[in-house]
Amino acid sequence: MTATGPGPVAVVDGATVRYKTLVALDGVRAEFHTGTTALLGPNGAGKTTLLSLLSTARQPHEGTVSLLGEPVRGRSGTRRVRERIGVLPQSFGYYPRFTVREFVEYAAWLRKVPAGERRARVTEALRLVELEKYADRRMGALSGGMLRRAGIAQAVVNRPALVLLDEPTVGLDPAQRVGFRALIRDLGERSAVVMSTHLAEDVAHVCDRVHVLLEGRMRFTGSAADLCARAADHDGAALDGPAVEAGYLAVVAEQAEGNGVPA
């Protein structure tokens, strides 16, 4: 995968997004470096909207988004940076009669991987997700875990600097989740991986940094250890539950108290 250097791979600066009267993101600022970053928050917090900004599918009404120091704006600029991004949606479409190899080759073509490099890139992506021996199996015959791996292969076939994962372990059994976490950690060695999730357990095992979004605003940014350190209520008593989950609940409680809502 492409080395990205010591600086941030992606920067969101003061991004605001509105859907009619709903403010989905409100002045959000965040940096994403090589490694794995979690977007943690409840439904409607703005996680998917933030991913859509990072994927260039949407542009903010206010603020800016940049990738590798290049602002994402205008048709030509958007097209240029899009070639450095890989995306795995929570639900992704595929033609069931495609083989795994054909599916990843099609993704390589869409992302403008040069024709002379496609075969090698597809082999590289399948090797990364340990699907080489299943390359000729039809997509419609894959298990849920193997489908997710094929989804990762299509997301990284262009050697992206930024990989966006939306709820990547939802629907996987415990053994599949363990294997998938190892794959995500490996991706974070070479790219900036941004993972939207509801699962605090995934954050604890995979992520270097955590952003907590609540009601469209960034309420916490720090390491997983920093979030665990928030695992106390306003009286200083430890919250029950796993440390990352307890830290997240502490942030939610602090926000509720700030809004005058009993926690």
Rank of each mutant, 00 (worst) to 15 (best):
G5Q: 05
P8K: 01
A10I: 01
V11S: 11
V12I: 09
T16W: 05
T16E: 03
V17D: 00
V17N: 01
V17S: 04
R18F: 02
R18C: 03
R18A: 12
Y19N: 10
K20H: 14
L22I: 15
L22S: 12
V23P: 02
A24E: 06
A24F: 07
L25D: 04
L25M: 11
V28K: 04
R29L: 10
A30D: 05
A30G: 08
E31D: 13
G35D: 12
N43F: 08
N43R: 14
A45E: 08
G46E: 01
T48H: 13
T48K: 15
S52P: 05
L53N: 03
L53V: 04
L53M: 11
L54P: 06
S55D: 14
T56V: 12
A57R: 15
Q59A: 14
P60C: 03
H61G: 15
S66R: 14
L67G: 04
G69E: 09
G69A: 03
R73S: 05
S76W: 00
S76T: 04
S76K: 13
V81A: 03
E83N: 11
E83W: 14
R84E: 05
V87K: 00
Q90H: 10
S91P: 00
F92T: 08
Y94I: 11
Y95C: 15
F98V: 06
T99H: 08
T99G: 12
V100Q: 08
V100P: 06
R101P: 10
R101N: 13
E102V: 11
V104K: 15
V104Y: 12
W109M: 13
W109Q: 13
R111V: 00
V113Q: 08
G116P: 05
E117K: 14
R119Y: 00
R119D: 11
R119Q: 14
R121W: 06
R121S: 14
T123P: 02
E124H: 10
L128F: 14
V129N: 03
L131I: 10
K133W: 02
Y134W: 07
R137T: 07
G140H: 06
A141H: 07
L142A: 00
L142C: 01
G145D: 07
G145L: 03
L147D: 00
R149M: 07
I152Y: 04
V157S: 03
N158T: 00
R159K: 11
L162V: 01
L162G: 02
V163N: 00
V163F: 03
L165S: 01
E167S: 03
T169S: 14
D173I: 09
P174L: 08
Q176K: 07
R177E: 07
V178P: 02
V178Q: 11
A182W: 01
I184E: 02
E189A: 07
E189P: 01
A192V: 01
T197L: 01
H198N: 08
H198M: 09
L199M: 06
D202T: 02
D208Y: 08
V212M: 11
L213Q: 09
E215L: 15
E215W: 10
G216S: 11
F220R: 10
T221Y: 07
D226I: 07
D226V: 12
C228I: 10
A229L: 09
R230I: 05
R230P: 10
R230W: 01
D233P: 05
D235Q: 15
G236C: 13
A237I: 14
L239G: 12
L239V: 13
G241Q: 13
L249K: 08
A253H: 13
A256V: 02
A256S: 14
N259I: 08
V261G: 10
P262M: 03
A263W: 14
